[in-house]
Design a protein around this nucleic acid. Structure first.
Lengths: 182, 182, 182, 182
DNA sequence: CATGAATGAGTTTTCATTCAT
DNA sequence: CATGAATGAAAACTCATTCAT
């Protein structure tokens, strides 16, 4: 793939990632192409239909989420601190998972698209390990699962008001923490 | 207004309320009409455009929310119990506010539509009073506002998985509660 | 026919006559009904479809035109004066003939509707006689026919600017007059 | 602009010009597209709504009228001859101005659309000059203005019967001429 | 008999996707 | 390979006409 073609591809995915969140996954393809600085034709050459584009965005988002959580685990001293930092950054960058939050509903794509399958697995593993460690350390409630956290995050990022969103996340983190009296 | 026309109107609003939540506010007008058991023409006779229908649904939702919170306040012994019950029922019935959660963005409609203005005010007053009483009783954190709660609820009801949604709400309520150690 | 029913009928025809001219013969039936102060149902009870209403308006217009020309002939001293007065009043009241100006294209209606047939004939006779007399008196050019005058009038009344319309008619009358040098 | 796209654009404007006159400015967009040999989508890509198409037709008509009057002025020996030839050709080709005949009512479009503004001005200047010259030469009555002529023409071209239309114009030209006895 | 509610066919308009340049 | 033009199916909206109240 030529350098410029690759750049185009990246710009399209980036534009789609943003527009899918801000304008919904129904955002006009022409808008996405314009935001990416290319013609629709170019978009369709790379991604035969909206589904393919959504899958590509999902892969991209998984990559970013994986990077985020990996960094947080490296740099924070506890799993609980890493988890909280990860979720705050997730919210801040509004990385949407588009489909159901663990993307288990994407059975078709998961079967076909090995890149998607692999990055999803890697992220899930890191995420799950962090959650379990935080629970074992006695910081995170034991009755919470990946599904609840991911679903909550996926809902949260749909909101536009960053200020309010941040406070809601803070309340939720307090709700998830193990408190002395519990 | 004729009895049958009123019945149709109610069915349209009810159908729209459900479809707006489950399929988004872009749900085809024809679908809404079909779900209400009427022709599109009937829908458009009552509601000249999508905005008018959205306003009507919002009024309806405010009425239901007002009824819910009023009942909860009557039947529960503390403001905190009433608030929790209200939020659980709100989630259960998935009453979406469509626009921004306190509907302050509906400036146009709020100016024009006095019915909307009144029921919104009534609901907000009841809601605010309940929050303040729960805070004064030492049950609800003092750093939480209507906006956070309403925004959270509005995001929450977009989710389809009732099971998960219920648990997320429970975690949030724990996060909002004043815990002995705080 | 009851008195009120008759009044309704007249109001409908009057409203239609005006709206057909000002908003075109495509004017919404509901608008016509509203302008007449009745419901659409009432309109359709009297006139089974748009065509029937148009025919009724045409009959009404022929009646008014016949009255106008008859009065003008009675009160003016020459056929030419009568003709000019008639055309000025026709323009002033904007009485449109809706279909082709002599309504010869209405073959269907002319066959079915004897009232229409009769009043049309009566008007045409008066009109033609006036034209011929004015020609014989040496006031009106001999190369002009009913068709040209009626077509011109029918076009003229479509214009909304009474001021300009009046001047156009004046120029045309000068063009129709026999001038000394011709 | 690509050659084929330009050809399509021209065909659309040409089709619209004809259909707007023969079937009124309410002519179905789909009909216009079909007459132009393109799909509706193509039409809407060029002209976002009916108004934009009407403006384009108006620009086109002004261009043609300007060409007509310029040629007439070049080839005829007197202003009066040029004016008469111009008006005859205008009627023959049935070039309608759609809105009010001098398009002064198009204030919005005149402000936005500089192409429209310029060609309208150019045409008006040529037209006015011709009228004034014919008046100064003693051929055209001095009490007639652009507005009356343009309004008359705009009404005239709505008629379908070319035969009658031609005779009406001839009478009008006689009415506008300075006759020896006047 | 009057009313205005309901219907659905016809139009306008948008947009995903294909294809000529 | 990139572009943006063309297409047509789908959704929004209007209105003539019918019919229940």
């Amino acid at each position: 793939m030529r350098a410029d073609a690759l750049r185009n591809r990246d710009q399209i995915v980036a534009a789609a990632r943003v527009l899918f969140i801000t304008h919904g996954v129904e955002a006009p393809m022409e808008e996405i192409a314009k935001a990416a600085g290319v013609g629709v034709g170019t978009l369709y050459r790379r991604f035969p239909d909206r589904g393919a584009l959504m899958d590509a965005v999902t892969v991209d988002v998984f990559h970013r989420l994986t990077g985020m959580i990996a960094t947080a685990r490296d740099e924070e001293s506890s799993a609980w601190d890493a988890l909280r930092r990860f979720l705050r950054e997730w919210a801040e960058f509004r990385l949407g998972l588009l489909q159901d939050p663990l993307c288990s509903g994407m059975s078709q794509a998961l079967r076909t698209n090995s890149e998607l399958r692999e990055i999803r697995t890697r992220w899930l593993e890191l995420f799950e390990r962090t959650v379990q460690e935080a629970q074992q350390a006695g910081d995170l409630r034991r009755d919470v699962g990946l599904m609840e956290i991911a679903t909550f995050m996926n809902l949260l990022i749909r909101d536009e008001q960053t200020e309010t969103t941040g406070r809601i996340l803070a309340f939720m983190l307090d709700g998830l923490a193990v408190t002395p009296g519990t």
